[in-house]
């Protein structure tokens, strides 16, 4: 071959084949393929170190070339060779068309003429935006006001709960008291208890026990001492939580 350029940069079997034919400056025909067969085979040595899959691809084309050449060597088989080689010649022509297209694509890609798109979906940010006149002091004042408003809400339920519990407790205590002595006064019941809360609770407890017919209460006149005594040995009824309006 007059000008065998070293083709160590070929990408694949079709690339090699195409370069060999282009080097010869001939059209892609059956005859042309047969002509470059030897050269193609000569280049296979360079393929040995490639991955097995790639080597296989090269060998497939080599086999096609050899078959094609053998058909051309046998007199009277030229026609068959033409028909059979259509595959390879056609494959190479199609491949060349895409190679040419890829050069235009490469130029386009490299030119930087691109379309741009929104990078990501606009995120709706829920941001807290304080009014411009907001100061640390006004925040403090607002906080104090909120706490002040919370106070009664926090207190009231605690007082209610406390009273319910203490009435139950008082009922138990009064039961024990009247069980240990046949007769007691309201003052006895109140002994050791301080505060109007305790008076009210104790009084409500007595009213409840009267209602349950556990005790009898008597008062001879206004502001006179109230006497409390057991009605009888009752069937033990458990103390009942008293509703607030009892």
């Amino acid at each position: 071959m007059s000008h065998t350029v070293k083709l160590d940069q070929f990408e694949g079997p079709l690339d090699l084949l195409l370069r060999l034919i282009e080097q010869e400056e001939i059209d892609i025909t059956t005859i042309a393929l047969a002509r470059v067969c030897e050269e193609y085979l000569a280049h296979l040595a360079q393929v040995e170190h490639r991955p097995p899959e790639e080597v296989a691809d090269f060998l497939v084309i080599a086999a096609k070339l050899l078959y094609l050449k053998s058909l051309l060597l046998v007199p009277g088989m030229e026609g068959e060779a033409e028909a059979d080689a259509t595959g390879l010649a056609e494959q190479l022509r199609i491949y060349r068309a895409f190679i040419e297209a890829s050069r235009a694509l490469e130029a386009r890609y490299a030119s930087g003429v691109a379309c741009y798109a929104t990078e990501r979906a606009p995120v709706v940010t829920a941001a807290f935006l304080p009014p411009p006149r907001l100061t640390a002091m006004s925040l403090r004042d607002a906080c104090v006001r909120v706490i002040a408003e919370l106070e009664p809400i926090v207190r009231i339920p605690r007082a209610v709960i406390g009273r319910v519990i203490s009435i139950d407790e008082r009922i138990t205590e009064i039961r024990q008291l009247v069980a240990s002595q046949p007769y007691a006064t309201f003052d006895d019941v109140l002994r050791g208890r301080v505060g109007s809360d305790q008076r009210i609770v104790s009084f409500l407890a007595i009213l409840e026990l009267v209602k349950q017919r556990v005790i009898e209460a008597e008062q001879s006149g206004r502001f006179a001492p109230i006497s409390v005594k057991v009605v009888m040995e009752t069937v033990h009824t458990p103390p009942v939580a008293v509703p607030r309006d009892a």
Binding site: G12, P13, L14, E53, E54, D57, Q91, Y95, F98
Partner: peptide
């Protein structure tokens, strides 16, 4: 692969 003549995986 048919067009390129090589494995393309």
């Amino acid at each position: 692969e048919q067009i390129r003549g090589v494995h393309c995986g």
